[in-house]
Computed example of a mutant assay.
Amino acid sequence: MEVVQSFLAGEGGAKLLARRLAVPEEKIRTWVSHYRLHGIDGLRPKRSTYSAQFKLQVLTHQDREQLFSRQVAAIYGIRNPNQVVIWRRNIDQGRLQALKSEKEERPKMKPKRRCAAPANIVATDAAQALREENDRLRAEVAYLKKCRP
């Protein structure tokens, strides 16, 4: 925050502040961009995973508006502008699959079976149990009908 405030107060440009504070010049430019667009929240740490659709949206916006990676990263709240460069490189090299996040690529786990018995045996046993219960209930209803006055 101090670096951003110094820059905005005109105490020096990114190069001068970078030398004075031993901070990379690109970092200062990134921090200032994030602060200008998102305020103090733009400087807070953020961990995110991005969907392939989001990545394509960012790259399309960058192409349409002819923006630098740092600029488009600031607009979309991406803390590391190099991430946009990596996405661009992947898509330029025809690796569209590389845009998918690890979570999207992860295969779904198959549910475990609860019993070791084959399904047709279980179904047959259940059907037999239902038939027996049905017969018992019919007999009970018939008996109650006969008992009525």
Rank of each mutant, 00 (worst) to 15 (best):
P81F: 15
N120E: 14
V4D: 05
K100Y: 14
K146G: 06
D41Y: 07
P45H: 13
Y50W: 13
A117T: 06
S69I: 01
A14D: 06
F68L: 11
L144K: 09
V85L: 11
E140G: 02
H61C: 12
A14L: 08
F68Y: 10
R138T: 11
G94T: 01
I86Y: 02
L56S: 02
R89V: 06
V4L: 11
Y143T: 12
Q128K: 07
L17H: 03
I121R: 04
P149A: 15
F54A: 05
K146F: 07
P118V: 09
M109L: 12
R44L: 13
H61W: 09
F68C: 01
V84T: 00
L144R: 15
A52Q: 03
R44Q: 14
V23W: 10
P45L: 10
I91N: 00
E26D: 15
P81R: 07
K46I: 09
R114V: 06
L144G: 05
T49D: 11
Y50Q: 03
F54L: 11
N80E: 15
Q128H: 12
A74M: 10
K100G: 03
G13W: 08
R148G: 08
G94P: 00
E105A: 08
G42T: 04
E25M: 15
Y143G: 06
R138Y: 11
V122M: 10
F7K: 03
G39K: 01
I78Y: 04
L8Y: 05
D92Q: 10
V85F: 03
E102P: 00
I78A: 03
S6Q: 13
H34Y: 06
R20K: 15
W31Q: 00
K100Q: 12
L21V: 13
L99G: 01
K145E: 15
R131C: 08
V3M: 13
K27R: 15
E2F: 07
S69V: 00
A9M: 05
G39M: 01
R148D: 09
Y50E: 00
R29V: 02
A142H: 10
L8F: 05
F7Q: 01
L59T: 01
G77I: 14
R79D: 14
A117C: 10
K112I: 05
S101K: 08
E2Y: 11
H34A: 12
R136A: 11
D125E: 13
A14P: 05
I75G: 00
E26S: 14
I91W: 00
D41K: 12
C147Y: 03
Y76D: 08
P107T: 15
K146Y: 09
A22Y: 13
T60W: 03
H34W: 04
